[in-house]
Amino acid sequence: MKTILLDTGYWIALFSSDKELEKQDTVEYVTKLIDENNYKVIIPFPTLYEFLNSKLSRKVKQKFNLETELSKQKYEKIYDNDYRDKALKKFIYQYSFTNSDISLVDEVIKEMIEDKNLKTDIIVTFDESLKNFARSMNVEVV
């Protein structure tokens, strides 16, 4: 069974379709891919924190839609306990030496991709640095 990891941008595009028009083809493709295949879907909890705090906190109706979406049996929410300390160290180190836009959530996702036990086959992200990292780890990017 293949495993798909969903980044925050997927949730934003899915629940803000009117504002994320350029991403809707990808959202539709991924939704179809998930619905029509026997894939396990990994949802890193930090992506939910990021999405809920930034985009969904005041949209009551969409909160119910999210609850319905997250209740799908294929979805597995992954806590960041095994990844966060190492990700935080990398985040602080990189932030100290670069001016790039670095996200702690992205660092957690990178740790998850590197985890051979989790086995990520596909990542859905709109973040270019995550795309590049995933490709370097032989993970398919959507």
Score class of each variant (00 low, 15 high):
Phe15Asn: 03
Asn99Phe: 13
Arg58Lys: 13
Ile12Cys: 07
Leu48Thr: 01
Leu118Glu: 05
Asn37Glu: 07
Arg135Val: 06
Lys61Ile: 11
Leu52Met: 13
Phe133Arg: 00
Lys74Leu: 07
Lys90Thr: 04
Asn99Thr: 08
Val27Leu: 01
Asn132Ile: 09
Leu104Thr: 01
Asn53Tyr: 09
Glu128Phe: 13
Lys23Tyr: 11
Leu130Phe: 03
Ile78Thr: 02
Pro44His: 06
Met137Ala: 11
Ile42Ala: 11
Phe133Glu: 01
Trp11Lys: 05
Glu28Lys: 14
Tyr83Asn: 01
Val30Pro: 02
Ile122Lys: 06
Trp11Met: 11
Glu111Gln: 14
Met1Trp: 05
Ala87Gly: 03
Ile78Ala: 04
Ile109Glu: 04
Lys19Asn: 13
Ala13Ile: 01
Leu6Thr: 02
Lys55Asn: 12
Phe91Leu: 06
Lys86Thr: 06
Thr3Phe: 10
Val139Ala: 04
Tyr75Pro: 04
Lys74Asn: 11
Gln62His: 08
Val142Ala: 09
Val141Gly: 03
Thr31Ile: 01
Glu20Phe: 07
Lys23Arg: 14
Ile113Tyr: 03
Asn138Glu: 12
Glu107Phe: 09
Ile42Lys: 06
Leu21Lys: 14
Lys55Val: 08
Tyr75Asn: 12
Met1Phe: 10
Lys32Leu: 06
Ile122Glu: 04
Lys72Ser: 14
Met137Pro: 03
Glu76Gln: 14
Val108Asp: 02
Ser57Met: 09
Pro44Gln: 08
Ile43Tyr: 05
Gln62Trp: 06
Asn138Pro: 02
Ile109Met: 10
Lys90Ser: 10
Ile78Gln: 09
Lys119Val: 02
Glu28Phe: 14
Met112Pro: 02
Ile43Arg: 04
Ser96Ala: 14
Tyr29Asp: 08
Gly9Ser: 09
Thr8Leu: 03
Leu70Arg: 03
Asn37Ser: 13
Lys110Thr: 05
Ser57Phe: 15
Leu21Ile: 15
Ser54Asp: 07
Pro46Tyr: 03
Leu66Cys: 05
Val41Ala: 06
Lys74His: 08
Ile12Asp: 08
Tyr29Cys: 07
Phe64Tyr: 13
Val41Trp: 04
Asp7Leu: 00
Glu36Cys: 08
Glu140Met: 08
Val41Glu: 03
Ile12Thr: 07
Tyr75Asp: 00
Lys55Arg: 11
Leu5Met: 15
Arg84Glu: 06
Glu67Arg: 13
Lys86Met: 04
Lys23Asn: 12
Asp121Ile: 05
Leu5His: 03
Ile78Lys: 09
Thr31Lys: 14
Ser57Ile: 12
Asp106Leu: 03
Val30Ile: 15
Ile102Lys: 00
Ile109Asn: 07
Lys19Met: 13
Leu56Cys: 04
Val142Glu: 06
Thr26Arg: 15
Tyr93Pro: 00
Lys32Trp: 05
Asn132Gly: 10
Asn99Ile: 10
Glu36Pro: 01
Asp80Ala: 14
Thr68Gln: 11
Ser100Met: 08
Asn65Tyr: 13
Phe51Asp: 02
Glu114Asp: 15
Phe133Gly: 00
Thr8Cys: 10
Gln24His: 04
Asp18Glu: 15
Asn99Tyr: 12
Val141Tyr: 05
Glu107Met: 14
Ile109Phe: 02
Val27Tyr: 01
Glu22Arg: 14
Lys40Phe: 11
Leu70Asp: 05
Phe51Ala: 01
Val41Phe: 08
Leu33Val: 01
Ser57Arg: 08
Lys23Met: 10
Phe97Pro: 00
